[in-house]
């Protein structure tokens, strides 16, 4: 099956932009290494609670499910942003991108609220190996989402100012890759850390 210029998506029309997308996949692969190291640390230290809270005592089901549903929805709206861009609908692309970053911001807000509640209850990250592993793993994901929000704001501005240029289309494509990747990481956080901890 050979690819022709006609059926190639707009992000891959230009050779250099295609190479940048490939480079972004390589970056995501290194991020897989970062997160799997932190997951390994968490798995090993999960039972080392030092008389402090166990995963079962620390986690609350409600807020975590809300966070998960928010992030899944933001992943969906992000895909609609890229879809609109491919249909050459600039306003749709910008609007869905703004919805995505607002959902991301509410996710981070909920997560920070959860962290602050834990720390004020005396369950800070220096208390036990379990809490160190937990805050490092979940915090690294949360900081990734925060960086993604800043990126989305700048991308929305660039789209609004310059429109669906060759460069902007590639930037939206790589942003979508980043955002969906963070959703995958969260699915594993939700399953391995929260659901397994509450089971």
């Amino acid at each position: 099956m050979s690819t022709t210029t006609a059926d190639r998506p707009p992000e891959f029309q230009d050779m250099h932009e295609s190479i940048r997308i490939m480079g972004f996949w390589i970056f995501l692969s290194t991020d897989v290494g970062l997160f799997s190291s932190l997951f390994a640390v968490y798995a090993v230290f999960r039972s080392r609670v030092a008389l402090g809270p166990t995963p079962h005592q620390l986690f609350a089901m409600g807020p975590v499910l809300t966070e998960t549903l928010i992030l899944l929805t933001s992943s969906f709206t992000c895909s609609l942003s890229l879809y609109s861009a491919r249909m050459n609908r600039l306003r749709g692309a910008v609007a869905w991108l703004i919805v995505t970053l607002l959902l991301g911001a509410s996710f981070v807000t909920l997560e920070i609220r959860e962290f602050v509640a834990d720390v004020t209850a005396g369950h800070g990250w220096s208390h036990s190996a379990f809490l160190s592993g937990f805050f490092t793993l979940v915090g690294t994901h949360g900081s990734h989402v925060t960086i993604g929000i800043v990126w989305a704001v700048m991308l929305a501005l660039q789209l609004a100012m310059k429109g669906l240029t060759v460069t902007n289309r590639r930037k939206l494509y790589t942003f979508a890759l980043y955002w969906h990747f963070l959703d995958i990481v969260w699915i594993f956080l939700f399953s391995v850390v929260y659901l397994s901890g509450m089971a």
């Binding site: 690819t3 190639r8 998506p9 891959f12 050779m15 295609s18 490939m22 992943s75 969906f76 992000c78 895909s79 979508a176 890759l177 969906h180 990747f181 959703d183």
Partner: peptide
């Protein structure tokens, strides 16, 4: 679905 895994130039 979302990351268009098989797409490339």
């Amino acid at each position: 679905i979302f990351m268009h895994l098989r797409e490339a130039r």
